[in-house]
Design a protein around this nucleic acid. Structure first.
Lengths: 194, 194
DNA sequence: GTTTTTCTTGATTGACGAGTCAATAAAGAA
DNA sequence: TTCTTTATTGACTCGTCAATCAAGAAAAAC
């Protein structure tokens, strides 16, 4: 009973299932069969729509990144002033949706893949550049010439804390990571040193 | 012609070959056969000495961590005063030996493995705790009650910058990462805020 | 109502890899 | 010398998985 217009539905289901499956397995040794099964279809269909395993994973990662970008945009909506905007950006990185084990697993494996896959590397760069320039935009008015270095530190601290929190077994409050980055932000703003 | 006492030699060769192979492949889909070939022996012998693939990889990671710990210790030898010791610790994390692509690949895959392997997770915690307490030891005299948070930020920034630099295609100077962390250190020391 | 397009899968292919085992060989112990 | 321990490997087992293909079935187009 082939209903027409299934492609977008199937693709979305596969993307969702891929993230879930990576979360369940922990690494990229997920099988196309299992992803397809989780999405309620045959592995042949998954190949039909995506071509191959890596393309399925890249689509899943593109989706994760898009969700994250939407969260940042939405958080920026209600923020007035440079300082408030910076805090909103920081907070968006540590929302609970980003801390679902499956999302963390996807990120870690994404880093691994970025070493060898040009597509994955490209995608990663887009994320990094976007974070950097968003920070820069609101840092420049506050710290002037130091903005470049400050943005680099804040972005790296976000990544580092995400890594540590994601790998911590204890689900210690995520608010702590947010507070740590905001503390850095305060120092950056308050520092008189060049 | 079995010479006796080969075990430590074979183990060391396998550990070295494992890191090289992970560097070459980029992920943990390295085969025991290829590792063994690189180390100049049969795959059966690798199994004989280590038992299985994961144990080979854990031994390689233990070695990487031990090398890093030795670098920190050695850097601390010549450092007088808390500030100098802190800088030495920071610098040790960004030495060129830590930036060999094979070592970076090993670290990234180690993070992935730490999600599902209790042994890997345990090993990772040892690294994190050691870094934290080493920082704490010299931070406390300088920043008092803020030492805990400061150490967390510095450690996370080290990890985050390592991640970013390791994944950057351009081999932009590592000294930059060091400078970024030292800049944070200066802010931590100079900050008057609690 | 026939043809074409879209959707779907079972079955198959072809390859690869972890781990085991039996067998060989040297060195030392008894 | 005979026995045991250590070293070593080729061959094999057993399983897995990505990717392909031929074929069926429903909708839409003609």
């Amino acid at each position: 009973m082939p209903k027409l217009g299934m492609e977008p539905i199937r693709r979305a289901a596969l993307v969702k299932a891929t993230i879930e499956e990576i979360g369940a397995v922990g690494n990229l040794d997920v099988t196309v069969s299992n992803i397809a099964k989780r999405a309620g279809m045959s592995s042949a269909l998954a190949h039909h729509y995506f071509g191959g395993k890596e393309q399925i994973f890249l689509a899943a990662m593109r989706h994760t990144l898009a969700v994250y970008a939407a969260e940042v945009r939405s958080a920026l909506k209600g923020a007035k002033g440079h300082r408030a905007r910076l805090e909103a950006i920081i907070r968006a990185g540590f929302t609970s949706s980003n801390f679902e084990p499956a999302v963390i697993a996807a990120w870690l494996n994404f880093y691994v893949l970025a070493q060898t896959s040009a597509d994955a590397h490209h995608l990663l760069r887009i994320y990094q550049r976007r974070l950097n320039s968003t920070l820069l935009h609101d840092l420049r008015p506050l710290v002037g010439g130091r903005a470049d270095h400050a943005a680099g530190r804040i972005a790296a601290l976000i990544d580092g804390l995400y890594l540590r929190q994601g790998l911590a077994r204890t689900s210690a409050e995520q608010s702590d990571a947010t507070a740590q980055v905001i503390a850095l932000l305060e120092m950056e703003i308050g520092a008189r040193v060049q």
